[in-house]
Simulated assay, not measured.
Amino acid sequence: MKPVIVLGGGGHAKVLLDTLILQGHNILGFTDLQSQASIWGIPYLGHDVEIEKFSPKDLVLVNGIGAVGNNSIRKKLFCFYKERGYSFASVIHPTAIISPRVVIGEGAQIMAGAVVQADVHISGNVIVNTRASIDHDCRINDHVHIAPGATLSGGVHIEEGAFVGAGAVVIQGIQIGTGSIVGAGAVVIKDVPKNRKVAGVPAHMIG
């Protein structure tokens, strides 16, 4: 395995560092826009520009930027370093339950206790957060964040950059449009157009 640098030093980055340690990765350090102390002895390397001192051939990156309702910064960082030839490691917690018939894209992150069933397609730079459940035949496009405890029934399609909040439930066959936000605890029973916010039980448009 190539050495790893984690982008970011916040809460999501700490969860990823914990998983990487558990898996025995060689972690060179982490970057952040604000000065940081080391985390569990893992060194703070400085701002993100420090990454370009390393050749893309010599390491892989892990995107440690979390997103609560806004995936744009996470997407921007991923695309910036991809354009410069860097690769992103997918991080999968050993307690996640994943069918062998799942497709997992570059830089995807599947956290502790998540369940991903057969014929799910998870694209690049996706977060499937703690204890989220994704049932059969779902398609999760690039830069999506499925927050802790969210449940997607079979055949759900989440388009690029959308966010599904903690504990939300999306019934079978629903499509969530590009850039849309599903509020925490919502129950989605109708398709959500792009760039909309929905919340409630059943979910309705807000804002």
Rank of each mutant, 00 (worst) to 15 (best):
D48C: 07
V49I: 07
V49F: 11
E50C: 15
I51Y: 06
K53V: 07
K53D: 10
P56L: 08
P56S: 05
N63H: 07
N63M: 10
G66F: 03
K75G: 09
K76S: 13
L77T: 15
L77M: 13
F78P: 11
F80T: 15
E83F: 03
G85S: 10
Y86D: 06
F88G: 11
F88L: 01
S90Y: 01
S90R: 08
V91Y: 05
H93P: 03
P94G: 08
P94L: 07
A96C: 09
A96K: 05
A96T: 03
A96L: 02
P100D: 15
V102Y: 04
V103F: 09
I104L: 14
I104K: 12
I110A: 10
M111N: 15
V116K: 08
Q117D: 07
Q117S: 12
A118Y: 04
D119E: 14
H121F: 06
I122M: 00
S123Y: 03
V126C: 00
V128R: 02
V128S: 00
N129P: 12
N129I: 09
R131F: 05
S133T: 15
I134N: 00
I140D: 03
D142R: 01
H143W: 00
V144S: 00
A147P: 06
P148E: 07
G149K: 06
L152R: 10
G154S: 11
E159S: 11
E159A: 09
G161P: 03
V164Y: 00
G167A: 04
V170W: 03
I171W: 04
Q172Y: 04
Q172T: 04
G173I: 06
I174V: 12
I174E: 14
Q175F: 01
G177M: 00
A184P: 10
G185T: 09
G185S: 02
A186S: 12
A186M: 05
V187H: 07
V187Y: 02
